[in-house]
């Protein structure tokens, strides 16, 4: 939590004499407000995540005091050297700090933050996303990544061939020795779009993004490429941290109780792959439960109880 507010602090300082509307129009300020934890680039999503809701394991809820819900325009206090606008807030021309969202009020030291309950995915460079190919031409593919616009994957940014030959999470690769592959590969990059088709689902990384153009993706890198088998579902982006849990605790719990593997991408898409359909189905229900009850106390225990009792009913 401490990294969070320090990031928020330095980037959200709004000079007193600037009109607040102009501040928000300045792309840097607003973008940084949106992504205070941009330090998380490149970290595997299943290991850690932005800890926006604070693990109840470490008493995060109690630390922040009562979970007050605030609304857009609600005055949270007067801006002073001891009270500064953080994530999800802004100072109005009168010097009041107001909330920009419906969300939880959170105080960290001098900063007052508002964590929104809902929100679409805003692409960030370095995020791992799961996207569906919806269109393609000779040089690029277009993917739906649950963002305001489609994302582009250029042929030149696609990884070296079908990653699906390796099962996600383990197993050796097939297709010849490294020497053989090197001889027939042209440096690992294909210049046309024959390797993926419309309807394929891909794990990709956001390569480039600024608000004026579509996000660019790449599948060059470990653990990137098309996924095969299993099932995908959407969850609301602000609930991702709860699904991951503190240091991946919720995901690990789900992995241990069922035989399923779980990949939670930053754009709110979850890939589930298990050995049994009933377990996959159960996992879908468990994830929906986590999504609906993300703000509650004692969720981890309830999820454990729920999954354990349902697993007993699963046909062996």
């Amino acid at each position: 939590m401490s990294e969070f507010h320090e990031e928020g602090g330095s980037k959200n300082e709004i000079p007193e004499d600037e009109h607040y509307e102009e501040d928000l129009a300045d792309s840097n300020t607003f973008d940084e407000e949106e992504h205070p934890d941009s330090e998380d680039h490149g970290k595997a999503p299943i290991e850690e995540g932005p800890e926006k809701f604070g693990g109840e394991e470490e008493g995060g809820l109690e630390e922040s005091g009562t979970r007050e819900v605030v609304t857009p325009g609600q005055v949270l206090g007067a801006k002073s050297k001891d009270l500064l606008p953080g994530f999800g807030t802004v100072a109005d021309p009168k010097g009041n700090i107001i909330s920009l969202y419906v969300g939880f009020l959170q105080k960290h030291g001098k900063y007052v933050n508002v964590i929104p309950f809902k929100g679409r995915y805003t692409p960030r460079v370095g995020d791992k996303v799961i996207g569906k190919i919806v269109d393609k031409n000779v040089v690029l593919w277009k993917l739906d990544i649950n963002a305001p616009c489609v994302a582009i994957l250029r042929a030149g940014d696609a990884g070296e061939g079908d990653r699906g030959r390796r099962e996600y999470g383990g197993g050796g690769s097939k297709g010849g020795s490294p020497q053989v592959r090197r001889r027939f590969d042209r440096g690992g990059k294909k210049e046309d779009t024959s390797q993926y088709n419309v309807g394929d689902t891909i794990i990709a990384k956001v390569l480039k993004y600024d608000r004026t153009t579509e996000p660019s993706l790449t599948t060059v890198g470990p653990d990137l490429g098309p996924i095969r088998g299993g099932f995908i579902m959407d969850i609301a982006v602000p609930k991702i941290p709860r699904l991951i849990g503190k240091a991946g605790s919720m995901i690990k719990l789900l992995n241990t109780l069922t035989s399923c593997k779980l990949f939670v991408a930053q754009n709110g898409v979850v890939w589930i792959k298990g050995r049994k359909i009933d377990e996959e189905r159960l996992l879908i229900r468990a994830i929906k439960k986590i999504e609906n009850e993300a703000h509650t106390v004692g969720l981890t225990d309830r999820v454990k109880e729920f999954v354990e009792s349902e697993m007993k009913k699963v046909k062996v």
């Binding site: 739906d144 309807g199 394929d200 996924i227 095969r228 088998g229 299993g230 099932f231 995908i232 359909i277």
Partner: peptide, 23 residues
């Protein structure tokens, strides 16, 4: 709306087992 191959395959698999997405 485009349905991904994964989703389509999953549903067909369920149907072959006599069941549907929502059970």
């Amino acid at each position: 709306k485009k349905i991904s191959t994964i989703e389509k395959d999953y549903m067909l698999d369920l149907l072959s087992r006599g069941t549907r997405l929502d059970g």
